[in-house]
């Protein structure tokens, strides 16, 4: 029985207002808000899911708006094993932007990254198919050409949101107990000197006094 937890750093990319934060909110809290503020506050969320008897912990990084003036920090992509590139099926411009992000990831990110192309807000089409500006086939075709997973989602109804994350989780090589962690180049990272600043350290270090 394999009980190790695999952590997956997942980043979100896409034009403003396509619903990136809403997808995360749906996935993490099964919630939706009609007038969501542009991402403020929570842009680092975690969520665990069980996939075939394994626990996968998603560490989800939202852009925090830094992409707006091409100011996304390299730290954002660093070591990310997965990405959601989101567009709005009612906004053709957002699909063009998605192509741009695919290119950017191919250049900047680690080449084993699992990428999902996500066409969001399909609930809008339920009453009015005319609203659709990006054909499903267009998305599918792009995803196939670039080797990406593809989903059409609605953060509002929850359609395909969890499915997207599970599909990513299934494609990530899972850590088995005792496995060593590897960095983006597949080089083993020795854990011995790594420290968790927030939760560890000798209590003696905190109090006055000296133990040397």
């Amino acid at each position: 029985m394999n009980s190790a937890v695999t952590s997956i750093k997942l980043v979100l990319l896409g034009e403003a207002a396509v619903g990136k934060s809403s997808i995360v909110l749906r996935f993490v809290s099964n919630d939706f808000s009609e007038n969501k503020e542009p991402t403020i506050g929570a842009a680092f969320l975690t969520q665990r899911v069980n996939i075939n008897d394994n626990t996968v912990k998603f560490e989800i990084w939202d852009t925090a708006g830094q992409e707006r003036f091409a100011s996304l920090a390299p730290m954002y992509y660093r070591n990310a094993q997965a990405a959601l590139i989101v567009y709005d099926v009612t906004k053709p411009q957002s699909f063009i932007k998605a192509r741009h992000w695919i290119k950017e990831l191919h250049e900047q990110a680690n080449k084993d990254m699992i990428i999902a192309l996500v066409g969001n807000k399909v609930d809008v089409l339920e009453n009015n198919e005319d609203e659709r500006k990006v054909a499903r086939e267009e998305g599918e075709k792009l995803a196939e050409e670039e080797g990406l997973l593809f989903f059409e989602t609605s953060a509002k109804t929850g359609l395909n949101v969890t499915e997207t994350f599970v599909a990513i989780g299934e494609k990530i090589p899972l850590k088995t107990a005792g496995d060593q962690e590897t960095d983006s180049n597949g080089v083993a990272i020795s854990d011995e000197q790594r420290i968790d600043l927030a939760n560890s350290g000798n209590a003696a270090g905190q109090t006055a006094g000296c133990s040397c």
Binding site: T39, I40, G41, A42, A43, F44, A64, G65, Q66, R68, F69, A70, S71, A73, P74, M75, Y76
Partner: peptide, 19 residues
């Protein structure tokens, strides 16, 4: 600096590089 810039952005800070 990148980590603190992200903190700022998460709390609404606007970032412009190359400007």
């Amino acid at each position: 600096p990148q980590g603190f810039a992200r903190l700022s952005a998460i709390y609404g800070g606007t970032y412009m590089l190359d400007t």
